[in-house]
Amino acid sequence: MKINAFIEEYDLHDSLIKKNQINGGKLVLEIALCNWRQNNYSPNENEMKEIKVVFGNVQSYYLDSTNDTVDSDSIMEINCSDVDSSPTLKDIKIVFEGEEGIKIMTFRSDSVTVEHDSLC
């Protein structure tokens, strides 16, 4: 999936980043998604949903924080911008808040996949 399509399809505001892992060229975010905020939400579904978001071909990963531990931090904003040298790469910025305050994750990627699981 293209990064722009992901950001348009998923409303991540107030969802929780439960865990992040960078491994080679992949960034994996385990997120407790506020399912009730999604456009396709149906009242007979769970209000929260576990998803795993995997960004591919990750470059320039940086987490700006006094504490690099992520533990159910609330997503405040996610956005992306074009990279002049590539038609597919995007610069992504995720702003989230934890017990230690505001954290900003920035990285460059060209693709994202989403895996779904139910959460009570």
Rank of each mutant, 00 (worst) to 15 (best):
D64S: 14
I75R: 05
N46A: 09
E47N: 10
C34H: 06
I78G: 07
S86E: 03
K52T: 15
L89V: 00
K90Y: 00
S74R: 13
I94E: 03
N44A: 11
D73L: 07
E77G: 07
N67Q: 07
S86F: 00
T88C: 05
T69C: 06
L29E: 04
Q59D: 13
S81T: 11
K93C: 13
E47V: 11
D84R: 02
K90Q: 03
M48Y: 11
I78R: 09
P43K: 11
D84V: 02
I31V: 09
V83I: 15
Y41L: 04
S85K: 04
V95R: 08
K49Q: 15
E30K: 13
R37Q: 06
K52W: 00
K52V: 09
S42E: 15
D68Q: 06
D84M: 05
Y61F: 15
S65G: 03
D91L: 04
S60F: 09
S72C: 08
M48C: 09
K93A: 12
N57I: 03
L33K: 00
F55M: 10
I51Y: 04
F55L: 04
G56Y: 11
S60W: 07
S72L: 09
L63G: 05
I92V: 14
C34L: 12
I31G: 00
L29T: 02
D91K: 10
Q59R: 14
T69G: 12
T66P: 01
D68W: 00
N44H: 15
E45R: 11
P87I: 14
R37H: 12
V95G: 01
K52N: 11
I75A: 05
E47M: 10
E30F: 03
N46P: 00
I75C: 03
S72N: 15
S60A: 15
D84N: 08
S74Y: 09
V95S: 08
S72R: 10
P87E: 14
L63I: 03
M48F: 11
W36A: 11
N57Y: 10
T69Q: 10
Q38R: 08
N40D: 15
K52C: 10
D84Y: 00
S60P: 02
L29S: 05
I78C: 10
S81Q: 11
N35I: 01
N44Q: 13
R37A: 11
Y62R: 12
V53Q: 01
N40E: 15
D84T: 07
I51D: 08
P87V: 14
S65N: 01
K52M: 12
M76V: 09
W36M: 10
S85M: 05
Y41K: 05
T69L: 13
D82C: 05
S72T: 04
V83N: 09
L29A: 01
